[in-house]
Write a protein that binds this DNA or RNA. Structure first.
Lengths: 232, 232
DNA sequence: CGATCCACTTGACCAAAGTCAAGGCGGGTG
DNA sequence: CACCCGCCTTGACTTTGGTCAAGTGGATCG
């Protein structure tokens, strides 16, 4: 069942009072959707705001040369398209479930009522947008300065269950082909570079990853030592 | 002198009433700064919000491997760092005047008072953040899917004085080395690819650019025809 | 239990962009 | 007017990542 904590996990709603959260619960729609389910389509006006409870959702664009660009992949606690509800022109991207997901969504009209009624929602909205902005900023920086290998290493570190103590093992959150798109490279490049990272204490078996020492990897990333490998 | 219209050019303030704008004027700081002047530095808490009236300002990060990543370049009517005032941790990037600029800035405390006092400022803030988000989304998309040549062509089109009728001529807004950074490539690549674009009806003399037919260029960009050149 | 499908991997090749190094051109200065 | 300095351009070469094509291996289904 949908719990108050599920909603409060989102920056957008984190500042709401218990009372406000309780009022929210009956007006949201909760759905469980299978991998591959389309949520909304590029060019259509956006009429709902989504919050991911579990699973993963991609935001992407299909360019007119046929290739798909993944803008971002959203996971638990993240909201999509709140900006779209505000700028009311057609939304420039499509959304799709990347891994079986539980989603909560709110109707545009209901959300606008909420926004008008509570200054805390407006505040949450600003905070939420600011965080998205920060995330995209990091993304741009990575695309401009890091090699494919480095972007992969950075990604694996973010997947690393927190603590980052020695020898973390975890599963990749979604398909490798999607990871490749997220990181802005071809699946072949991901494959090859993952193999290369073997020399840096990372082993991959199917979609199970083990990082010998996250701290060491982090330092190597920061100092640009990942480039030339020392064939270990 | 600072005019009400200068402020209203910013999305952030565009919805304010005449009375609110008038109240704003005495509390803002106006400055004219020379190219190269640093505005704020990465890692420091951000204490002002900036609005560019004329000229250009870069937002960048110096990575620990020594290279500079330009996140974005802000021009007339654009605001920087409004998100930073909100997320109150240290700001992750530095700012610098890229071309002699006239700037307006507002103190953090004053802006917070404004935000609390007027729901229209909050609304403007959301709209402004949403636009930044949109801009960065486009950026990510371009970096992931377009070649250097295509990114340059797209950039030149955005510089094209609007109308985009046949044979537009204009000056590059800032140094070529900065344009290269903005587009995520080396100055050498920019230089070479600009030369390549000669075959597509673009001529460059020093920093004066002429586009024979923007429409044609736009179509070539959309259909991916810019890649293989037909040696014309 | 084998056939098939799909996601991923691997290999060989190629094109795009980065690197390093030298050279030109203009603008400012003595 | 000659000099120097920065910015930009050009050239030769290297590296990275993309492309095309074939192969592997696990899962599913008959």
């Amino acid at each position: 069942m949908l719990a108050a904590d599920d909603l409060r996990a989102a920056t957008l709603f984190s500042r709401l009072s218990d009372r406000e959260i309780d009022a929210l619960i009956p007006i949201v729609r909760e759905q469980t959707l299978a991998k591959g389910t389309p949520l909304f389509h590029e060019g259509e006006p956006m009429d709902r705001l989504y919050l991911v409870i579990s699973g993963w959702v991609t935001l992407f664009r299909d360019t007119n040369t046929g290739q798909r660009v993944v803008i971002r992949v959203f996971g638990p606690g993240e909201t999509l398209a709140e900006a779209a509800l505000f700028l009311d022109s057609a939304f420039p991207a499509s959304g799709e479930v990347a891994e079986d997901a539980r989603l909560v969504s709110i109707d545009r009209a209901a959300f606008e009522r909420l926004l008008a009624a509570s200054p805390r929602v407006a505040t949450g909205m600003i905070a939420s947008l600011a965080m998205h902005l920060r995330a995209l900023t990091v993304e741009v920086e990575q695309l401009k300065t890091r090699t494919a290998t480095e972007r992969i290493a950075a990604f694996l570190l973010t997947c690393c269950p927190n603590g980052r103590k020695a020898r973390s093992t975890f599963e990749l959150p979604y398909d490798k082909s999607l990871i490749a798109q997220r990181l802005g490279m071809q699946p072949e490049s991901l494959s090859r570079n993952l193999a290369k990272l073997g020399c840096h204490g990372i082993s991959i078996d199917r979609n199970r990853v083990t990082i010998d020492d996250p701290k060491v990897l982090e330092n190597a990333l920061g100092s640009g030592t990942l480039g030339r490998l020392s064939s270990g």
